[in-house]
């Protein structure tokens, strides 16, 4: 791989971050970095369908929220000792909650995708938004799980051999998942399936004309992306130790989309860079002025108007749009 060296350096830096943060007396940075990793997975998963498949989903935060709520609800039932619907026991084991979170998000994406992908263009953007809004209001109304106040997850999930109460251990766990997800997505994008997705983005009519039944490939991509975002949400619930409907609000969907575009649509690392840039800007600008969004808005505008390849495009790596 041509980019192997910079990637290795980047990864080494990421692994070393908690020690550096401790050494510099900035332990709070670890939590911030963990949040970036989680959002990076979410943004990367959106990039699979948005950047490579051309499907502009404006409801991707729904799967983020569903993943997070899966962890929260399983914790709540574990804490109360009451099985869900009297059947499914609660759990605080990460190796249990994570796969379930991905499953829940994947099933939701399968149902929503199957319906939404019958439309395209603006209608697709809006129908995915509509489904996410349904989920948002559903959880606002579920008093049993805190309604709009959200749900506390008093203790992070357990993993054999790790203590997630230590911020650095949670950080490394999330880093591991991010790297694994990016590797998986890199393989997918380069595979025959990925070529089909990419072809659909560029010219769906052409794909049908070479004998590809595009709907089922789009749906498969949609489900994979939903599962990835569910994973991100489940990790986020552990990081925040709190879940609320805000995790699936339309603004969150917008934010995830912003990360993808800011970092660079259709690039491997772009969404993660975008997540880091957005969270970082929030942190840095937020430290200077409480009105940081006043400056963030024009920055986003400038990216759209003058740097359509996002940050990765500016770095001259893997730029495609422009």
């Amino acid at each position: 791989m041509r980019n192997a060296l910079p990637l290795a350096v980047l990864l080494a830096g990421a692994i070393a971050l908690p020690w550096a943060a401790e050494a510099l007396g900035q332990p709070a940075t670890i939590g911030l970095a963990t949040r970036i990793l989680c959002l990076g997975i979410a943004a990367a998963s959106l990039n699979l369908i948005l950047g490579h498949g051309g499907m502009v989903s404006f409801g991707h935060a729904l799967y983020y929220g569903l993943g997070a709520y899966t962890v929260g609800i399983l914790w709540e039932h574990f804490r109360l000792g009451e099985p869900i619907f009297g059947v499914i026991p609660g759990s605080n084991e990460l190796l249990v909650t994570l796969p379930i979170a991905m499953l829940v998000a994947g099933v939701a994406a399968a149902v929503i995708g199957a319906l939404s992908l019958r439309t395209s263009g603006v209608q697709f953007i809006m129908i995915t938004l509509a489904f996410a809004q349904m989920g948002f209001f559903l959880f606002v109304g579920l008093k049993a799980y805190g309604g709009d106040d959200g749900l506390l997850v008093r203790r992070r999930n357990l993993v054999p051999g790790l203590d997630l109460r230590q911020p650095d251990q949670l950080y490394w766990l999330c880093l591991g998942f991010l790297v694994a997800w990016l590797f998986l997505q890199w393989r997918i994008v380069g595979s025959r399936f990925g070529r089909v997705l990419e072809g659909i983005r560029q010219n769906e009519r052409r794909m049908a004309a070479i004998g590809i039944a595009t709907y089922r490939y789009k749906l498969a991509g949609f489900v994979i992306a939903g599962m990835g975002c569910g994973l991100a949400g489940a990790l986020t619930a552990n990081e925040l130790r709190f879940v609320s409907p805000d995790l699936m609000a339309w603004q969150k969907s917008g934010e995830i989309m912003v990360m993808v575009i800011l970092g660079g649509v259709g690039t491997l690392l772009g969404p993660v860079v975008g997540a880091a840039a957005l969270v970082g800007m929030e942190y840095v600008l937020g430290g200077i002025t409480e009105n940081w969004q006043f400056f963030l808005g024009p920055i986003l505008l400038a990216v759209v108007l003058w740097a359509p390849g996002g940050i990765m495009g500016l770095l001259g790596r893997g730029a495609r749009r422009g």
């Binding site: 502009v56 575009i261 009105n291 969004q293 808005g297 505008l301 759209v304 108007l305 359509p308």
Partner: peptide, 17 residues
């Protein structure tokens, strides 16, 4: 549409703040 969504999302932040 993607660019339009992002740019006008930026406008929202600008106006609200």
């Amino acid at each position: 549409h993607l660019d339009q969504v992002l740019a006008t999302f930026g406008l929202i932040l600008f106006f609200n703040q």
